[in-house]
Design a protein around this nucleic acid. Sequence first.
DNA 1: CTAAAAGATGTTAGCGCTAACACGTCCGAG
DNA 2: CTCGGACGTGTTAGCGCTAACATCTTTTAG
Lengths: 325, 325
Amino acid sequence: MSDIARLAGVSPMTVSRVVNGDARVREATREKVEKVIRETGYVPDPAARILARAGGGRIGLLYANPSNAYLAEVLSGALEGARSVGLLLLIEPSRAGAPDEEREAVRRLAAGGAQGVIVPPPLGESDATLDAIAKTGMKAVVLAAPALRDGLISLRVDDYGAAHEMMRHLLDLGHRGVGFVEGRRDQSATPDRRHGAQVAVDAVTGATMWAEAGDFTYRSGFEAGQRLLARTPRPTAIFASNDDMAAGVLAAVHAAGLSTPGDISVAGFDDTYLAASVWPTLTTIRQPVAEMARAAAVILGRGGEEDGPVPHEFIARESTASPSD
Amino acid sequence: MSDIARLAGVSPMTVSRVVNGDARVREATREKVEKVIRETGYVPDPAARILARAGGGRIGLLYANPSNAYLAEVLSGALEGARSVGLLLLIEPSRAGAPDEEREAVRRLAAGGAQGVIVPPPLGESDATLDAIAKTGMKAVVLAAPALRDGLISLRVDDYGAAHEMMRHLLDLGHRGVGFVEGRRDQSATPDRRHGAQVAVDAVTGATMWAEAGDFTYRSGFEAGQRLLARTPRPTAIFASNDDMAAGVLAAVHAAGLSTPGDISVAGFDDTYLAASVWPTLTTIRQPVAEMARAAAVILGRGGEEDGPVPHEFIARESTASPSD
DNA sequence: CTAAAAGATGTTAGCGCTAACACGTCCGAG
DNA sequence: CTCGGACGTGTTAGCGCTAACATCTTTTAG
């Protein structure tokens, strides 16, 4: 860094300011420094930055295995958000369902000097993690989960509204008997989604919704799909509360010798990688996960308190159509 | 750290020695210090360690979106491996297929002081990434890909052997007409797996293998499955060269009104999350991805040169059985 | 045209740790 | 004994950067 400073004819501190996007640097100076940086290919040393900020400027990202499908997006978003506000991202593996490990992960982040922590699902609804965070006094942003404790900031889509919208879509297509596959009972999005779907159905005379239990896995979707297809009258559409289960429902439909969307429309929720790769591709609700993670990093950095629902997006694909009769 | 030193009645340097397992510390002193560390829950600041070690002690992990399913495992493994040898892990998003971004990601790591880099698929077979790495002089360990350049260390399972073993399993069950779904042509595991399967088939008189193209996606598996099922005589088993495609094949089997494994056995490869979540669960080959990533970090840290195939594991689940006739 | 405010840059100190060397203290060989 | 070395521990300096404050320069108001 001092080399850069010398080459640009300024002090190291000014270089630091330029690198960190400090506003109080004259345009001419900034350009001079940036030019030298570009020419030399200088990149600041992350370790030194962390150290110098000692206690400040770091945030943590917890992650647990089950959030598999999200991880790449969460990571990218958080990394980018952290970079944009000049924060360092400490990444720490945790393990949902193993309270000791969850606590240890939080403790590590705190020991690492994180002032804030991003908590993706399913950790955001885990008492062990939440309590440990509260104890350290770190700020926390939970993703896709409600703010279960005071002081928590929640970034999530409006599950109720999104489910309502999806069910509305199915009803508008003309479906009157619709199956619904619920998610895990211990996640608060589950009742929200079901409720949204139910309210949409109740608003249409002659429409009925049959709900079946599920646990967000492909397999549970497959089984719930089989149960729904065995009903008389048979539903003409099935709305599963996540994509994995919707894929399972799709398999059940095919296994029953029926086609999608010809005989049965199928809808999912989340817009994970799976939604666009199964056949037919799934009509679903997109949660802007990367965007949420980026926002979380920015909130933790700037100390902002932006709460409230994140906008979701209805994604129409091939798996829904009007009933054939 | 100085707190620990004070509490234990020693100098900070001695604490450092204890933390780093330096041999020249009297047993009594070590115990005293360790006791204090345990009681206080002290965790050394990785950033400061790295910094003090002047430039050394950092490795990078590149990741590209498509490696979605692997990411969580690769990350956990790499993080743990890095921690175990006291390295700082720099994580850098890249984008396979965008040469400029790939080069930029590598450049960033090099500038960040990484002396080595872990390259998960599909970046390990990308010229842009590989050339950029060579230019920086960093050591590199590629995961699940061959060492396409001199000096590269490759950590991969024996694709040929594993495919041979899986096909052998199907033949042993009594299958004689077996479908095979290939992966993307630009990944070297593809011919290896096909070849392994082919050789196993050739060793059994009366056995035949029909290969279909695929590109590792669920959808391509579904389509290849449909083509294979349309053949006469129809295969009694289908071996797809990854789990996503195997799941697609499963869907095709069900769509054709057939059952698995009753009518058609299906086998996958990789043992991703999907393999255990579809119904029926997939017989597949497990690649110890987390283990490989951990090993990569350790190799880069210790400067070891351990090469050679990583042991894979044959996982028998529900999707394969003897043919019904 | 001057003084004070505002803006831009420099200086000093230190983040938490570890190399490198300096300093005891105890040992056994001569 | 007495000296060289082995051993255990402390001291000093500095890794590359940034907070906080100090200083210098420009602007603005009267």
